[in-house]
Design a protein around this nucleic acid. Structure first.
Lengths: 189, 189
DNA sequence: ACCAGCATGTAACCGGTTACATGATTGC
DNA sequence: GCAATCATGTAACCGGTTACATGCTGGT
């Protein structure tokens, strides 16, 4: 089980519903975890049954009722155990990189389109994460916030997200330039 | 099925045995895919059965015999189809980031150790990838190689690997500094 | 009228992980 | 003598993905 700790960590920010969590996990919760709604609802049910989170029904009028969840003491203890235990490093697994690996042996037209899209998606994420960072730190400087702010966890993971997506975007742009130049050279023969 | 294309792409460099592939995939083949030996042997069997790769037995004296595989025309066609089709973006999923997300609510001692280890592992990968890049480009400059070299795919993915691991290392170092400073502030109370 | 957003699930499937298994050679 | 490297697999499991399902409200 891997998602459970990501959910617990996400719920440290306060009470959230499954739907709200789903929105957060849809963009990857500041690029550190991605999950689909179905997975989350299932995981929330399990976590509640095990007493690691507590849910309460919130009745709404013009919308369907929802259940807000928060981490219990047992849940926090679980996170504590998890953080203390060693984990094996995670690896990148990206189809786009596989395609680039094969780029000099196959047609690159579609690949170039995809790389362009990826660069744009990366830029969109950068913008999103940057505004998130601004919201988190408020009117303090970054250094000030990281020293004395109360919830630096999300800020730090978000910084990683920004750096990752910048790298992503820059690499896409560079790769497009290289492949396009080689295409032209090849066309001229 | 996802691994199959990564294997096909890896085999574009020339004939390789399952064991050699396993070594490459163990470090993540320039950080674009990771897989275990068992997975590879199973996948190679499947790919050969489907005619996407062809294997030949190589008899060795002082070592167990091995089977070398190369991509067939059908395999190349499969790669072509794969590259032309759209893929959904991949997401980062890293336990270490989950831990950092929760860092201000749990004890960070073990986490700091792990971050240090990660920074070192990232540095080791950077060194590894850099030497790979040097080997690939030979005595040409990077620009020259990317313009006229014949196998730029591996070079480009390797560039991504270096950038990723640098980002990784820098973020670990930064995060350690932040968490450690907060620890001291908190200890003094 | 129709689509987007709110809100929550079930069930089947597949791919990746973990555990288990074997056996020879070379170097410390 | 022991560990590391070469070399190749099988089987059970689990977690993440895909497909399917429901129903109400508010805006264009």
């Amino acid at each position: 089980m891997a998602l459970r700790h990501a959910v617990l960590a996400a719920l440290l920010d306060g009470e959230l519903s499954g739907y709200q969590l789903a929105k957060a996990f849809d963009v990857g919760v500041a690029n550190f975890w991605y999950a689909q709604p179905q997975q989350l609802y299932a995981e929330l049910t399990r976590l509640e049954r095990e007493g690691l989170i507590a849910g309460r029904e919130v009745v709404q009028e013009s919308r369907p009722n929802k259940r807000l969840f928060q981490v219990t003491d047992a849940g926090l203890a679980e996170l504590e155990t998890f953080t203390a235990a060693a984990t094996k490093p995670s690896f990148v697994r990206d189809d786009l990189l596989v395609k680039v690996q094969a780029a000099d042996r196959v047609d690159t037209a579609a690949l170039l389109t995809e790389l362009t899209e990826r660069a744009q998606m990366a830029q969109a994420k950068i913008d999103l994460f940057r505004s998130l960072l601004r919201r988190l730190r408020g009117d303090r400087t970054e250094e000030e916030f990281l020293r004395h702010g109360d919830r630096v966890g999300p800020y730090l993971t978000c910084l990683r997200g920004v750096a990752f997506e910048q790298e992503n975007r820059d690499w896409c742009v560079r790769t497009i330039a290289v492949l396009e130049e080689r295409r032209q050279l090849h066309a001229r023969h």
